[in-house]
Each structure stands twice: as C-alpha cells, then as structure tokens.
Simulated assay, not measured.
Amino acid sequence: MNLIISTFENFLKPTNSFIRFLLVGIVNTGIGLSIIFLLMNGIGLNFWMSTFIGNTCGAVISYILNRNFTFKSSKSLEASGLRFVAIIVISYFGAYGLSHLIWSGILNHTSLILVTNKEASVFFGACFYTLMNYFGQKYFVFNKTR
C-alpha cells in the first residue's frame, strides 16, 4: 500500500514530466484544436488539412515549451529537432488515422449522433496523439543520455 501511495505522490509532484507535458498540452491543444475547428467548420477545409495545419501550429508551441519547460533539455536543435518532427508525424498519422477509422465505423452504425464522425475523430485522435507524443518525446527526442 505504501508503494501505491508513494507512486501516486511522485506522479502528482509538479516536477513530474508527464504533469508538465499535460500543462504544455493544454496550451498547445487549445490553440491547435481552435485552429482545426476554425479551418474545418468555419472555412470548410477537409479533415486531413485542418488537423494537419492545427497540429503543426500546436507542434511548434509544443517543441519550444517541452524542450525548455517539460524536459529541460540541453540537446541541440539539430539533435532534437529532426527526432521531434519524426515523433510528431508518426503520432499524427497513427493517432488520427486510427481514430478516424474507429469513429467512422462506430458513428456510421449508430442512430444517436451528437457529434459527427469527423469531430469525434478529432477529439479522440487528440487523446491518442497526446499519449504517443509524450512517450516519443520523453524516450526518443529529449531523453537524458546516461
């Protein structure tokens, strides 16, 4: 029981990288999702262009804040930049592709639709994207050399 309590306390510490990552994520997700929905619903761009542009804007903010605040990395821009882009691209296509596939199938077979399959795909894709992105950045982009 003490191990569980200790683990929980450590997780909630403000120095925990996942908590910092989530705080940064609130900022870049708010900006990114606002751009996505503006482009998709306001301007009429398609799902892929809207999510790509919105996530690109969020990614720039994410890189700057995660490099300096979340992981406090001293790695050069060259060393971390290309890896960051690779993780973002893998996370983007993996998360949004999976979410779009899942929600297109689910919402096409239900009669009670509160949101469109595109909107559900965006929200759930953002969740998948966050998890994939965190682990990629922590262990591949900004990992501490031992």
Rank of each mutant, 00 (worst) to 15 (best):
M1Q: 01
M1K: 04
I4F: 13
I5V: 11
N10H: 00
P14S: 09
S17T: 15
F18L: 10
I19E: 13
L22P: 02
L23E: 02
L23N: 06
L23Y: 03
L23D: 01
V27N: 01
N28M: 01
I31T: 13
I31G: 04
G32V: 05
I35L: 15
I36S: 00
L39E: 06
L39M: 09
N41T: 01
G42D: 00
G44W: 01
G44D: 02
T51E: 07
G54K: 14
N66F: 07
R67F: 02
T70A: 01
K72T: 08
S74I: 11
L77D: 06
L77M: 06
R83S: 05
A86Y: 02
I87D: 12
I88K: 04
V89A: 14
S91R: 09
Y92T: 07
Y96N: 09
Y96A: 07
S104L: 10
S104P: 04
S104E: 14
G105L: 12
G105F: 14
G105D: 11
I106G: 01
L114E: 07
L114G: 08
S121C: 08
V122D: 06
G125I: 12
G125Q: 11
A126Q: 14
A126F: 08
C127E: 04
T130R: 00
T130I: 03
F135L: 01
F140L: 13
R146H: 03
R146M: 00
R146N: 04
